[in-house]
Write a protein that binds this DNA or RNA. Sequence first.
RNA 1: GCCGGAGUGGCGAAAUUGGUAUACGCACCAGACUCAAAAUCUGGCGAGGUCAAACUCAUGUCGGUUCGAGUCCGACCUCCGGCACCA
Length: 850
Amino acid sequence: MDEKYFPEEIEKKWQQRWDETGAFEVRTDDPRPKFYSLEMLPYPSGFLHMGHVRNYSIGDALAWYKRLQGFNVLHPIGWDSFGQPAEQAAIKRGVNPLVWTEENIGHMRGQLRRLGISYDWSREIAAHRPDYYKWDQWFFLKMFERNLAYKRVSPVNWCPNEETVLSNEQSSGGVCWRCGAAVEKRDLEQWFFRTTDYAEQLVQDMVQIESGWPEKVLKRQRDWVGRSEGAYLDFAVKGSNKKIRVFTTRIDTIFGATAIVLAVDHPLVAELLSGSDLKRDVDAFADKVAKSRSSRGQLAEEEKEGINTGVIAINPFSGENVPVWVANYVLTEYGTGAVMSVPAHDERDFEFAQKYSLPIRQVIAPITHSQMKAEPSLVVGTDQSAVMTRSFTDYGVLINSGDWSGRLSQDAIPEMTRQAEQQGFGAAAVTYRIRDWGVSRQRFWGAPVPIIYCDKCGTVPVPYDQLPVVLPATADFTGVGESPLAGVPEFVNTTCPNCSAPARRDTDTMDTFVDSSWYFFRYCDPRNDAMPFDPAIASAWIPVDQYIGGDSHAVMHLIYTRFWTKFMRDLGLIYFDEPVKKLLTQGMVTNRVEGTDEWKAMSKSLGNGVDPDEMIAAFGADATRLFVLFAAPVENELRWSETGTEGAVRFLRRVYTLVWRWQVRFAGAAEEYSLPPGEKLSGGARALRRKTHQTIARLTGDLEQLRLNTSIAGLMELLNELADFNADPDTAGAADAFVVKEALEALVLMLTPFAPHVAEEMWEGLGHHGGLLQARWPQADPELARREELEIPVQVNGKLRSRVLASPNISEDELRAAALADDKVRGFTEGHQIVKVIIVPQRLVNVVVR
RNA sequence: GCCGGAGUGGCGAAAUUGGUAUACGCACCAGACUCAAAAUCUGGCGAGGUCAAACUCAUGUCGGUUCGAGUCCGACCUCCGGCACCA
C-alpha cells in the first residue's frame, strides 16, 4: 500500500494480477454451487458508453458478492458483432466489415479491462466468427427439418433508409427502430421461424418466471403474444355455397351484427365479386388502402372507409340477412381477416356504422351500478328508438336476442359457442397477435442462410458436414438493392448436395436476433466444435440466475430467447422451459442536454455523452463504478453528475487513508486479534461493533435484492462510525484495535463488489495474502447487532412527545410505567383520562387519552 | 383512448412493509488549517416560530380506516413509460 490513494496504479496492478492468474476463469466441474451472472452482450460499436458501464458494474457487483459467498460464478462476455453499422461503415467509408468489427472489439475489450470487470475472458465469443455462426446455421437447419423454418412471399416491412427488411418488432409504430424512418411495404421471399407455434407456451410458461421478472416486462410480453379467446363463426353467403368465417370474442353480441366486414385483401373478396360491376371500385379501394398503409404506420388515426359489396350473408343465429362490406379498418393478418360488425357494442364498428348510416342495434344492456351511471341512456328492455351516443362495450345482460335474451354475457358466451359447434357453424378458438419471426435480411454482415436452390431438386438444405457456410471476405457494398452476397459469384454458385448439378446459394443472411437468442448457452461450452454446446454442461449452468440489461429488449430479444429455449428443449438439447430465472431491467443513464433543462439518454448526436475512459482517467474505475451504483436504484434513470463521482472518490480515499493508518499496527505487531475473554469494551467500541454487524446484516439483505445504492450508503455509515470512534493506532488498547480491525475488514470485504481494485489493495494492506478470491463474505452476529439500550419514542394520541431509555428485554409493564412516569408525557396526560396504552415491543409506546 | 409505474428537502434518494419522515450522498453556508487558493477536517442545512426553547405545519390534492398513514382504502390532479383499429 502506498500512503496516498492513487487509483491508476492500484487498478493497473490488480488488473494485471487478475489477468496473469486467470482469476475469474471457472470450471464446470467445480464442486461449489453455481451462479450465473449475465449481462446483455454489447454490440461492438467501437466505444463503451455509460449505459454499458452501469450494466456491467451491476453484474460485476453481483458476481463478486456471490464469489465471496462461496459460489462458483460464471461471468462471461462476448460480442453481438453482426449487424448494420459494420455494413454502413463499409458502404460509407469503404472499410471492410470484418476489419472494422475486430478493431472495435479490440478497443472495447481494452475499455472493459480498464474498468476491471471480472469476466472469464477465456469464454469470450463473437457472433461474426465462423465458429459461432456455424451454429446459427446448424439451428436453422434443425428448424427447417422440423418445419419451424419456412419460406413464403410476404409483404415485409421495408426501411427505405437502410434498405432492409425489418421485423414487426423492429418497425413498431410504423417507424424503423434504429433510424426512425417511416416503414414501407414490399413483397419479398422471406424465411420465417414459426414463433406462433410456441405462442401458447410463451404465455403459459410465464408462471415459471413471474417471481423473478419485472411485471412490466411480463406484461409487455403478454401483450405482444396477444392471446385472445373467442370463437370462429361461419356466415353463409346468400346465393352461393361460400362461407365467410369471422373471429369474435363477443359471440353474445351476434344479434346486433348489422354487417360483415372483410379486410381489403381477404381472399373471398375477389371470388365473391368476380363478374360484378363493383369489382373495379373495390380493387381501386384496395390499392388506395395498401398505399396509405405503407406510407403511414398509424392505422388508428386513419378514417374508417369501406364499400358495400352488395353481397348478403346470413346470420347463423338469427337467420337475418346482413350486408357484406369491405373496409380499411379490418386487419388481414389477425383472426380470419373478417369480422362481424356490431356497432352498438364495439367502438370501431360504431364509428363505421355512423359514417355509413348502418343500423345500430343494442343487444346488451348494462346491469351494474357503475355501468348505469356511465350509460344513462341504456336501460334494460330499451325501446329501439333510443339513440346510442357511443358503443357499450362492457359485459351485461342480453336483450333483443331471441331466446338468449335475459342471459348474462358471461354465461351466454360459452353456451352460444357450444350451440354454434353443435350446429356446425362455429367453434371455440384462440387467436394470437404474435406473428412468425421473419429472419431473412438482404444484408452482407450476418450469418448466411444455409440453403441451396437447385433447378432439379428445389430447396436443399446445406448438409451439416458442410457447415459453416462462410461469408466471403468482401463484396460490393453499394448500399442499395438486393443482398450484397448476390453480387459475389464465388459465393452464390455452388453445386447441389443432392444431384451435384450447378446450383445457387440463398443470398440472405439471418437477423442478428438469431445470434443473441442462444449466446449465453455458448458461453458455457464456448469451444465445442461438435455441437452448439454440450447439453450436460449447459444444464449445469443454465437457467441464468440473474440477467441484466436495458428494458428496450423487453419484447424482442427476451421473447426470441424464450422461444429459442423451448425449441432447443424440443430438440432434446436441454430439459427446462425457461432460460432466465431473474431479470433486471436497469434504468437509462442520462445527462443534461447542453443549453436545455432536459435530461436525455447519452448520445453522440445530442452531444451529451460521457466517455468512460475520461472518467477512469480522472477518478479511477473504482470511483466511477461506485458512483454509478450509488447514485440511484438500479432500475431508475440515472442522471449523470461529475460532482457525484468526486464524492465517490472522497469516500474511497477516506477508507483508504484509514486502512493505511492502521495497517502499520496490524502488520507490525504480532498481536493476536481476538477479543480477550472478559475484556470490557468501551461504549464507543461497543457501538462500533454493533454498527459493523448491523451493516453486514443490512448489506447481505440488500445485495440479494440488488439494492446497491442502499448497500453503499450502509458502507458509508460504517465508515462514519469508524471515523467517529477515532481511536489512535499507536496508542489504542488491544480491545479497541480488535474492534477497529473487525470493522475495517468487514468494510473492505463488503466494498469489494463496488470497488474491487482498491478493496484488493486494502485487503492486502490488512495483512491478508492470496487476494479476495480466497476471502469470505463476513457473517453478522445478530446478538452483536442488537442494541443494548433502546431509545423508545413515546407518543400521546399518536404525536411524538418524548423518548425513554430502555433495555431490549424490558417487560411491557415496566415500559408502560417508564413512559407514564416521564415528565414530558405527564405534561400532556395531566387532566385527561388515559384510555389505553399501546406498546409495540422494542419500538414504541402510544398513550391514548381523552 | 387503453394498460402499467411514479409523485417525499435545492438535487439523487432512504424509511426494516402500519410505528422516531427526510438515512447516505451531492450542492450550499459557516469555521479550522493556509500569505492565499485548492484539498482536507469540524459543524450546520424541510418550512414557520423563538435570543434560545416550547410548539405548529410538512411525503401531489381532497376525503376515509386506525391509538398511529409516505405506507392501507376511495375520488381526483400531474408526470413518465408501454400499447394503439388485434374484433
